[in-house]
């Protein structure tokens, strides 16, 4: 039982990271109809910026958190304005290719701006181990699970009750009609990119606190993509839940079937789910796939 509990807790912790990144994928897709293949790289860049703040400005948790959020907003807005907005109206395939190009550029920038060494993000929190009986968990892992749950609730409320959230849903549903109703699609797109960057950045910072920071961190994007497919590419909340499911599935497969199964378990799971529900567990039936 202890073995299973430890697997589930660790699965939830890594799953929460996947879930946050997956929510970032879904926010952009829901608002722009686009799959952003640079999501993992955005996660990594924000984490590196947080690390730079912690080592050069202050290691205080709040300073790092605020600095990282501001940096994530700027990064998201910059990408939207400079890279994505000129692609408005272009074929989806071309736009997706642009995000792949962006991913390569962001990935390479790590070595140019920082270095190839792994680093630890030390904000005086997250590395301590809490033990209940023989079960151990790091405080950073508890915090990321809690953060995911809070964000799930906040985003649900945002899309359901806020004017801007409704506007985002309207643009996603039919941008031309939304435009006739007085909604600025570029403004909605910019907000989506900024929000997605912040959510992915939060995942990156928590990952760096609990594990470490390295140029290989962009691979989290690839690991999180099944989560958003599983939850539904257009379902922000579903993507978050999908992350938890993938994290748990991976860990159970790794713990009971062997190490080799861990990395493929998530992908096997989405193949099975997509055969039954091609739009994901929480996705809408008529979404367009790219």
């Amino acid at each position: 039982m202890q073995y299973l509990t430890q697997l589930l807790i660790s699965g939830l912790a890594i799953g929460a990271i996947y879930g946050l990144i997956a929510m970032g994928f879904a926010v952009i897709y829901k608002s722009t109809g686009l799959v952003n293949f640079a999501q993992g790289e955005m996660t990594m860049i924000v984490a590196y910026i947080a690390w730079t703040i912690s080592t050069t400005v202050s290691g205080n948790l709040f300073v790092v958190a605020i600095g990282a959020i501001v940096a994530a907003v700027i990064l998201g807005l910059l990408i939207e304005r400079v890279v994505m907005r000129p692609m408005l109206g272009e074929p989806v395939f071309a736009t997706v290719m642009v995000t792949i190009g962006l991913a390569v550029i962001l990935r390479s920038s790590i070595n140019f701006i920082w270095d190839a060494y792994p680093h630890g993000l030390d904000v005086g929190f997250g590395r301590n181990i809490v033990r209940v009986g023989n079960i151990g968990v790091r405080t950073g892992q508890i915090a990321v699970i809690a953060t995911l749950l809070v964000l799930l609730a906040a985003i649900w409320a945002f899309f359901r009750y806020s004017k801007f959230g409704v506007a985002m849903r309207a643009v996603a549903s039919d941008d031309r009609t939304a435009l006739l109703m007085g909604i600025s699609a570029p403004r909605v797109h910019a907000a989506a990119w900024a929000a997605s960057s912040v959510i992915a950045g939060i995942a990156g910072v928590f990952f760096a606190i609990s594990y470490d920071l390295s140029p290989a961190m962009f691979q989290l994007g690839l690991k999180s993509f099944p989560a958003t497919i599983l939850g539904g590419l257009d379902a922000v909340l579903g993507s978050g839940v999908g992350g938890l499911l993938i994290g748990i599935t991976e860990n159970l497969a790794g713990g009971y079937l062997g190490s080799g199964m861990k990395e493929v378990a998530g992908f096997l799971m989405i193949i099975v789910v997509l055969m039954i529900r091609p739009f994901g567990i929480f996705g809408e039936r008529d979404i367009e796939r790219v």
């Binding site: 073995y3 430890q6 697997l7 991976e250 990395e263």
Partner: peptide
Amino acid sequence: SGNYKKGQQDFSSDMLQLKD
């Protein structure tokens, strides 16, 4: 005796197996 996929970043289940 474990075997992990290149690029793997979370080793929680692998190390739990090792402990076990």
